[in-house]
Design a binder for these strands. Structure first.
Lengths: 317, 317
DNA sequence: AGGTTTAGTGCAACTGTTTGCAGTCTAAGG
DNA sequence: CCTTAGACTGCAAACAGTTGCACTAAACCT
């Protein structure tokens, strides 16, 4: 029914091992036989059975990608790029999501570990200890989290955050709020450290907050009370919620308060105001992570971010 | 190194076949032995090797999902739901994207066919003939396309479109444009048929158009020239582009023209105007498709859509 | 009591590929 | 002309499970 290596062998008058080799080690077989085998294989419609191959070699040619939430607009470009990179090297990609529950993370890694050659973890929330334990089961590369010993792809939010605050400073803002993210987030810490380094700015930190519109909305009150004219939000969702919340309090953006987001996930041209934000190289990160994984190189990479200035920032009045 | 079924067999004093059965057909083995085997397996940290299992059974316990573009906000909720449904039944999901190129579709199916037990195709663009050919290679279920012989999950856009046009009619609009989608799209045809059935409305069809913001933007001119007061757009992206385009021509939404989109993909509360649109049950579709696939039932299902009324529609003035 | 079902387990063949080892043949080196 | 190193290719044993069949022993039936 399904055509196997044996059928091809029989039809082309060679031994199965030769057929096997024309696919997995072409240089070991004579050019003439190789082309013969290949044409016969083509005619018969032979496709190597990956399960069988996996069984002998121990490599599945599958990779796993674990993100917090597939439906979070931050991730799809990353997933897409990772997928493309994998495909290019004849790997396939499983995508899983933890639904923002750190507990699901370990469980997923366990479930995947036997059937992938490696894993990409995006902003994992598990403890260092847990991650080190998992690293023994299956090789992985981490995105947006510093972890000694593991290959790492970082997006330099720190740099982006500094650009953002400098942008606000340049517009004349002197008192700026940082509406931070969830406690324990590497990204959030990174942003804060960078923001604090900008000279000539008085920084007030408001948080921790949930990294959602709701979280931003809830922070509006405190932002107003802080008496700031500029805000850097943990991410775009928070920024959106915040702008909405400020509106309820009678404060207009950017007229009364300037707001900068992070991630650049807000699509569409319909947004008012269009959000000034820090664009993240998500696609590059996805691609790179997969490349590192396949080539089994253990490196730490830091990707550039950039500030996109739109309409949610203006000089203070 | 890796612990196999044989190690478990030895350690628990039974034959490998018994161990195999405690995992793949528990009812066939005595309760006492079963628990003994299970505890031994647990102690040894045994995990069944899916590749080996796939080799003998011919079933990989993997499914494939092919969409046009992972990064298109319409799909992630569908992917997420499909993934969750698969996981629940101990299946894993490969996601692939065609990058909107119909040619990539067939190629992907080919590549997947040997290593998945089934495929979910979202709005496939290949010809009926090509699809029928592919159906012989691997079972699949189709989302948003009618195809005899294949299991099908439809989202009832027709109904949604009718609701939308009736909503416009109810507001007092008499002349309405349908800014349609790409030629050959099942969805676009469906929308048109439904829209034409609404009584008391003069419908002018403008299109075909690219299903993008750019496409909508480009259609603005013709919409103005058509002298309509209401518009139903092929999807939200088109609607957004159109609103932008109308703006450039000096027409305000909803004051001068009412616009209804389809898909409900525009997130965030910052949009002005907030788009009246037809919400699609994408998550339900993803879940259902996977369920149908796993259970190998061949059915045609039609999922309800609903109209979400926001701020982009108003009575004509 | 004798025959028959039934539950539980063992045996061994089989799945499709890879790969170390051994053999053959050719061409180059001495 | 003999030796030897390559270049190819064949052989057969893995890889980690599943499954039809045979077998045993206990339970059931009349």
């Amino acid at each position: 029914m399904t055509v196997t290596i044996r059928d091809v062998a029989r039809a082309s008058g060679v031994h199965v091992s030769t057929v096997s080799r024309t696919f997995s080690a072409p240089h070991m077989v004579n050019a003439a036989t190789r082309t013969r085998v290949l044409t016969v294989a083509e005619e018969l419609g032979y496709r190597p059975n990956r399960a069988a191959r996996a069984l002998t070699t121990g490599r599945t040619h599958n990779l796993g990608l674990i993100v917090a939430d597939i439906a979070n607009p931050f991730f799809p470009p990353l997933i897409k790029a990772a997928h493309a990179a994998a495909r290019q090297r004849d790997y396939h990609l499983f995508v899983a999501d933890t639904d923002e529950e750190p507990a699901a993370e370990e469980e997923l890694v366990q479930a995947f570990s036997k059937q992938v050659d490696g894993l990409v973890l995006c902003s994992p929330r598990s403890s260092n200890k847990a991650l080190e334990r998992l690293a023994e089961r299956v090789p992985f590369v981490v995105i947006n989290r510093r972890l000694r010993g593991a290959a790492t792809v970082l997006m330099d939010v720190g740099h982006g955050a500094r650009l953002a605050v400098e942008h606000l400073a340049g517009l004349g803002h002197r008192r700026v709020a940082l509406v931070s993210g969830p406690a324990g987030s590497w990204t959030s810490a990174e942003i804060r450290t960078a923001a604090e380094q900008v000279a000539g700015i008085e920084l007030v930190v408001i948080g921790p907050n949930a990294p959602t519109e709701r979280g931003g909305f809830a922070a509006a009150q405190r932002v107003r009370d802080a008496g700031v004219t500029g805000v850097l939000a943990y991410n775009d969702l928070v920024a959106i919620g915040l702008i909405e919340g400020l509106g309820e309090l009678g404060l207009a953006v950017p007229e009364d308060v300037s707001v900068v987001g992070i991630d650049d996930i807000v699509p569409g041209r319909l947004n008012r105001p269009k959000l000034t934000t820090v664009a993240m190289p998500t696609a590059a990160a996805g691609r790179l992570a997969v490349d590192l994984l396949i080539q089994e190189v253990s490196a730490t990479t830091s990707l550039e971010t950039r500030l996109v200035i739109r309409d949610s920032t203006a000089p203070p009045r």
